[in-house]
């Protein structure tokens, strides 16, 4: 499948209350690699198997949450075209110069109907996965903790879900892989899972009264055994688990939700499915939401619906 336009999630900037505690969490426990710091005190991290220089940026602040999430696009032509589309849609758009985030080219930052900030960019310095491109080994030595492969996706909470879906599908070319329908006549969309490539979701949103909330930032593992190993790390270091290990009905992921030292929810997961653009959108109904979200015990966890940053 030729992949054009928006390629994949590129990075997320998270606010944390205490940088040292956060680095212990994200580097020593989750297993991201520190790749740089800047004069604002931000720390740049990546999963071992990600080619580009960074995918997670931590910024110390008074309140946790997400500053922005960015997507990599295939060319300057795409960037310019999408920027015009965003302006026509009514987004507030700003160009941020190359180097504002180290190792990253110019970024087009824009707001969304739910108040979340997103970015598009073309260029980021190549870092590689440490294995080289010629006769590489399958994995590097010396990885720490949960050994996550990459930053994978976000689930966000916000109010104007319909506007959010319109922006991502009509302007940015995402497709809706799965959705949750509710309301008195089943016509109110309460959850959407959007993809720009071949994953079941690159960004997802659940309808919620407040704007601009982060539900979780997710990191990819390869196997269920690795998910269970991640759970062992959480037990060993008393990292607060939200729920899991369990399976999602939605997207089929096998998962654990847990919290970083600032209360931002993280996920480590494995196993989903490959999405092709001719697939039908999967529909979940509100009356079966327990199993849609937590497939094993078929029950909603109150914390899942209430705790966001």
């Amino acid at each position: 499948m030729p992949m054009t336009g928006v390629l994949r999630p590129g990075h997320i900037q998270l606010r944390v209350l205490d940088m040292d505690a956060s680095l212990t969490h994200y580097v020593d426990r989750i297993g991201l690699l520190e790749t740089d710091r800047d004069d604002q005190g931000r720390v740049y991290l990546k999963g071992w198997d990600e080619p580009d220089w960074f995918s997670v940026v931590l910024r110390e602040a008074d309140e946790p949450g997400m500053d922005f999430m960015a997507f990599k696009v295939d060319s300057t032509e795409t960037l310019n075209k999408l920027e015009q589309g965003l302006r026509d849609f009514g987004c507030k758009v700003e160009r941020l110069p190359a180097g504002e985030l180290k190792h990253c080219g110019e970024r087009v930052q824009f707001d969304s109907p739910t108040g979340h900030l997103f970015e598009l960019y073309v260029d980021k310095d190549y870092k590689g996965n440490g294995l080289g491109d010629i006769n590489p080994h399958p994995w590097p030595e010396g990885l720490k903790g949960m050994k996550v492969q990459r930053f994978d996706h976000c689930l966000l909470y916000g109010d104007d879900l319909d506007g959010f879906v319109e922006l991502f599908t009509k302007v940015l070319g995402f497709q809706e892989a799965e959705k949750v329908m509710g309301g008195p006549d089943g016509q109110l969309k309460i959850g959407t899972f959007l993809t720009c490539g071949m994953k079941a979701h690159d960004v997802a949103l659940i309808r919620h009264e407040e704007k601009n909330k982060l539900h979780h930032a997710s990191f990819l593992l390869r196997t269920w055994e690795e998910v269970l190993h991640a759970a062992d790390i959480m037990g060993r270091y008393k990292i607060p688990i939200d729920i899991g290990p369990t399976r999602h009905g939605i997207t089929r992921g096998r998962t654990i939700y847990f919290f970083d030292p600032s209360g931002n929810r993280n996920e480590t997961f494995c196993d989903s499915y490959d999405w092709y653009p001719d697939f039908n959108t999967i529909v979940w109904t509100e009356d079966e939401l327990g199993g849609a979200i937590f497939y094993h015990d078929q029950q909603l966890n109150e914390r899942f619906l209430t705790v966001v940053t």
Binding site: F259, D260, P261, S262, G263, N264, T306, V308
Partner: peptide, 11 residues
């Protein structure tokens, strides 16, 4: 009430 247990969610 038990939420994030990390100083972030306020519950």
């Amino acid at each position: 009430p038990v939420g994030c247990r990390s100083g972030g969610c306020g519950v």
